[in-house]
């Protein structure tokens, strides 16, 4: 109720500050540079939006006519170049990556947000390293994954090698978003819990984590988006076998790698564009989900 009254109040005040269109034009006439800046700013926003729309429309126009039932056949063969196995592989890869990365990411964030003393040298180092990880290009992850997991550990091109490489890649994202979410939990929650006699660990698990959950989820979904779209880090780790990867040491291809290989062979461009549409739809769905959860968090906070 108080909010509504406030809003009404602001609506009453607003007319005093109102600048009419005429007044505005007059001020622009006096300060033409301001008008130029306005135009530039609007133009820049227009270009950004146009770039997105152009790319998406282009992919859709070329891709949608190629979304045939054969593209989603259960088994891959070189005629239908079905993307179904790669969709399943992507899902499995994503799950395994999260199983590896999420405990580490959340654990590290809990340490940084709840236990670490401010200004600790080691904490600073951990943050610097996490930021370093976030900045490493995916091709370097691909090289490292190939050298370490595929050759040094002898896993070969495999689900495990791909998942571990990607887990390191998304670790900083999960760490950062989780830490931010933990920090937004009001201290009164912690104090209340301590006051009722709960220990620190109990407080974290029963009180803080549940209330930070939407933020943590949004971070995880962000990582999912990155995993789904990744190509360079996977080619040399997960490999490009066409079937379903049924074991940890089996190779498979994710959807993005599938698209890369299709275009590379040069025999199935149409299907590649169809696959691009599937990829875009996936990424779009993941983004919407993430935004939706983040919004839930926002309304809770406010």
């Amino acid at each position: 109720m108080a909010d509504k009254n406030n809003a009404a109040l602001i609506d009453d005040i607003k007319p005093i500050n109102k600048v009419t269109f005429k007044q505005r034009m007059l001020s622009y006439k006096r300060k033409p540079l301001s008008f130029v800046m306005l135009l530039l700013v609007a133009l820049a926003a227009l270009i950004s939006a146009a770039a997105l729309v152009f790319i998406i429309v282009y992919v859709l126009v070329r891709g949608i006519p190629n979304l045939t039932p054969e593209l989603f056949a259960l088994t891959y063969n070189s005629d239908n170049v079905s993307c179904m196995p790669s969709i399943i592989n992507t899902v499995v890869l994503t799950l395994l990556t999260l199983v590896i990365a999420v405990p580490f990411g959340i654990g590290a964030a809990i340490y940084l947000a709840e236990y670490a003393k401010k200004g600790n040298k080691l904490v600073k180092l951990i943050r610097t390293m996490a930021e370093t990880l976030a900045g490493i290009p995916s091709i370097v992850y691909g090289l490292f994954g190939m050298l370490f997991f595929v050759y040094a550990l002898g896993w070969g091109y495999s689900l495990l090698a791909g998942a571990f490489t990607l887990a390191i890649m998304v670790l900083p994202t999960i760490m950062r978003t989780t830490e931010e979410a933990l920090l937004t939990v009001p201290d009164s929650y912690r104090e209340g819990s301590f006051g009722l006699g709960a220990g620190k660990l109990r407080t974290i698990i029963r009180i803080i984590l549940p209330s930070a959950m939407p933020g943590i989820l949004a971070g995880i979904i962000l990582s999912v988006g990155r995993i789904v779209g990744e190509t360079a880090a996977l080619i040399y780790t997960y490999g490009s076998a066409t079937g379903y990867a049924t074991g940890f040491l089996n190779s498979g291809r994710s959807l993005a790698v599938h698209m890369y290989v299709l275009t590379n062979e040069g025999l199935h461009t149409d299907q590649a564009w169809g696959t691009a549409v599937v990829l875009l739809v996936l990424v779009f769905a993941i983004n919407t989900l993430s935004a939706f959860i983040a919004k839930k968090l926002g309304t809770k906070k406010g």
């Binding site: 609007a42 146009a50 729309v53 152009f54 429309v57």
Partner: peptide, 13 residues
């Protein structure tokens, strides 16, 4: 303006 420009770009595409 934004919408119409977007439409034009889309058609050009």
């Amino acid at each position: 303006t934004v919408m119409s420009a977007l439409a034009v770009t889309a058609f050009a595409g």
